[in-house]
Design a binder for these strands. Structure first.
Length: 604
RNA sequence: GGCCCCGUAGCUCAGUGGAUAGAGCAUCAGAUUCCUAAUCUGAGGGUCGCAGGUUCAAAUCCUGCCGGGGUCGCCA
């Protein structure tokens, strides 16, 4: 049960009644009426904006509408008070029993409390990470990885049928570089002195075992072959060796994808899915042969003006049309991506979510254009024709592009660029090993995704104990601890079983206790809002706030022992409070699970 | 130069068109014979970058500036 939705229903019913009685005009649009949490809890439990929203259309003073509405709602048995305040807010206070019902609801729903069905089982594809398969993951990758994973969790919790997908960029020039780099390590494994790694090849030591493995598989058979003979073989071999490294790195962050889609597979084994996709796009009339203007601010002599196959993405607000074929007759990266997304659509996904790094921001309009063209959807634009949002809508499927801002790297307060060659390459594994999985995940999520993030390895390591994740986890552990202690204090104490509350919740009368329930009651709304906005960070901030309320209430027990959960001389009260604590623990645990962060039973 | 993102307390950041704009850190003052002090209570600290506009109501939406960052042909 979502208490906000529930009370909103009652408010709407009251408004209908007022309209029928002629207090309000007929035919008013109630769609903007909302029941929300007041910012200041002293205003009440719930606040409604109906009077202000309707005043103009009803040609009435907001306060008059609010008073009329208040009179109706006062008759609701769950409503203790309905007061008009400020410009016309209707502030409602609900009786304790209303909140006790929330505790009962949490037990009934269990781990499903907060889960919604706003996704209605729609097939949804979340593509994230998609790092080049040329080496282990580094810190720069982990923000998008964690974000995408948490978003996938959030959507799954909200009723979407989620597929987590990784697009392996195994078809471009960088994998040829990888193959040559591995071949060098292979010669090294065969005993050759390879000296310095030449410019333009990957120097990392992580390729040594790959070279060894190549030797183990092929002996010296490849050594004296020309590059044409071994390049594609070594390329595939190297990727097969490196993808497990990447999967291990991701597993260290508790990330597991369902599908790894190979870019190279689009044009392998005699098929040409890229051509098929482009041919299908042709029916829209958006594929044409033409010339591109030289980009402004780019006075490069190498610019070659030529006629080429283009996609008219400018039709959808992109700055320019985009090339699909290179001058050597091969496909561009974009052409492959067109085919890849065509494939996603053919697999039946209704919703696509792509997680991009901020360095790919210029790529967004053409991807939106592609999906809009394939699905018959639209990309919303402003009066000047510029993109308004990073999503398409209205077609047979839609795409939302989420951009995670860059992780700016610092070392001892000084910015630095990562360089494999200079030894300033910080691997994701280093960070996870040093700081821990949960703190890394929480740090990445405790921030809006578009906000830049400074990352100083030394500082993060040193301050990892101050990470807010422990604050939230400690709240969970405290809850677990007091429940353990209560069971020890009262043998056979039970507050719930079979999804039902066995305690007398009417004993929960303290304001602090009820405030905790109210915060828990917000969880379903919070999840729904975060899922709709694709913003997992809201969950992290909510959990911090909930933990804070619990810690504060807990500490009140220092001065006021009668507020402690365990009351040695009152079994029934202890049971009721345990039910509350267990409900709160459930919400913490569900929220942490969405974030992919552990919910420990104890922290010592 | 075009486009995009960001600009809120000393610092790092939340903020769903709503009421007196919040939290953490830092600073200062306190709390531990007490279910875990990895905690809590309090104080000080703000022209929400600037200027207009829309609205009953703007940190939030629109326009134009300013500052910081990113990005800009067939790379991936």
């Amino acid at each position: 049960m979502n208490v906000f939705a529930e009370v909103e229903k009652r408010v709407l019913a009251a408004l209908e009644g007022l309209a029928q009685r002629g207090v309000l005009p007929e035919g008013l649009d109630f769609s903007a009426v909302a029941v929300e949490q007041p910012r200041d809890p002293s205003h009440g439990d719930l606040a409604c904006n109906a009077a202000m929203v309707l005043a103009k259309a009803a040609k009435m003073k907001p306060r008059d509408i609010a008073e009329a509405l208040a009179a109706v709602l006062k008759a609701d048995p769950d409503v203790v008070s309905a007061e008009v305040a400020g410009p016309g807010f209707l502030n409602l206070r609900m009786r304790d029993a209303f909140w006790h019902a929330v505790v009962r609801d949490i037990f009934t729903s269990g781990a499903q409390y907060g889960a919604t069905n706003i996704g209605a089982g729609a097939k949804t594809n979340v593509e994230y990470v998609s790092a080049n398969p040329t080496g282990p993951m580094h810190v720069g990758h982990c923000r998008g990885a964690v974000f995408g994973d948490a978003l996938a969790n959030l959507l799954a919790f909200s009723g979407f049928d989620v597929t987590r997908e990784y697009y392996i960029n195994d078809a471009g020039g960088q994998v040829d570089v990888l193959a040559r780099s591995v071949f060098l390590r292979y010669r090294e494994a065969l005993g050759e002195d390879i000296g310095e790694i030449p410019q333009g090849l990957y120097p990392g030591d992580y390729l040594k075992p790959v070279g060894e493995a190549l030797k183990a598989a092929h002996g010296a058979a490849l050594r004296d072959q020309p590059e044409e003979a071994w390049l594609s073989l070594v390329r595939r071999f190297a990727i097969e060796q490196i993808m497990p490294m990447i999967k291990d790195d991701l597993a260290a962050l508790n990330i597991r994808h369902d599908v790894f889609f190979s870019e190279a597979s689009l044009t392998q084994a005699g098929t040409d899915k890229v051509k098929a996709a482009i041919d299908d796009l042709r029916r829209t009339g958006l594929i044409f042969e033409g010339r591109l203007e030289k980009p402004k601010g780019h006075d490069d002599e190498e610019w070659e003006d030529r006629e080429q196959t283009l996609f008219r993405s400018s039709e959808f607000g992109d700055e320019a049309d985009r090339a699909l074929m290179k001058s050597d007759g091969t496909y561009t990266y974009f052409a492959g991506d067109v085919a890849y997304h065509y494939d996603k659509l053919q697999r039946g996904f209704r919703h696509l979510v792509n997680v991009f790094g901020a360095d790919h921001i210029g790529y967004i309009p053409r991807m939106l254009a592609t999906i809009a063209a394939f699905t018959g959807g639209t990309v919303e634009r402003d009066a000047k024709g510029k993109l308004k949002y990073w999503h398409t809508s209205g077609g047979s499927a839609d795409l939302d592009i989420k951009v995670v801002n860059l992780v700016k790297l610092f070392k001892n307060g000084e910015p630095f660029k990562m360089s494999k060659r200079a030894g300033t390459f910080v691997t994701l594994r280093d960070v996870v090993d040093e700081v821990g999985r949960d703190p890394v995940r929480f740090m990445m999520l405790y921030r809006k995704e578009l906000e830049p993030l400074d990352f100083d390895f030394a500082k993060v390591t040193e301050q990892s104990k101050d990470n807010p994740v422990f604050y939230v986890q400690y709240a969970h552990a405290r809850a677990a601890s007091v429940l353990r202690n209560a069971r020890e204090a009262f043998s056979g104490l039970e507050w719930a079983g079979d999804g039902r509350v066995a305690a007398d919740l009417s004993l929960l009368t303290d304001r602090g206790e009820l405030d905790l329930v109210k915060k828990c009651a917000f969880f379903p709304s919070l999840i729904e809002g975060a899922a709709r906005a694709h913003e997992p960070h809201r969950v992290a901030f909510y959990l911090y706030d909930l933990a804070s309320a619990f810690h504060a209430h807990w500490t009140r027990g220092n001065d006021l022992p009668q507020l402690r959960v365990i009351q040695a001389d009152d079994r029934a009260l202890t049971a009721a409070r345990c039910a509350l604590v267990a409900a709160l623990q459930q919400v913490l645990s569900s929220g942490l699970r969405v974030l992919g962060v552990g919910a420990p039973e104890a922290m010592r």
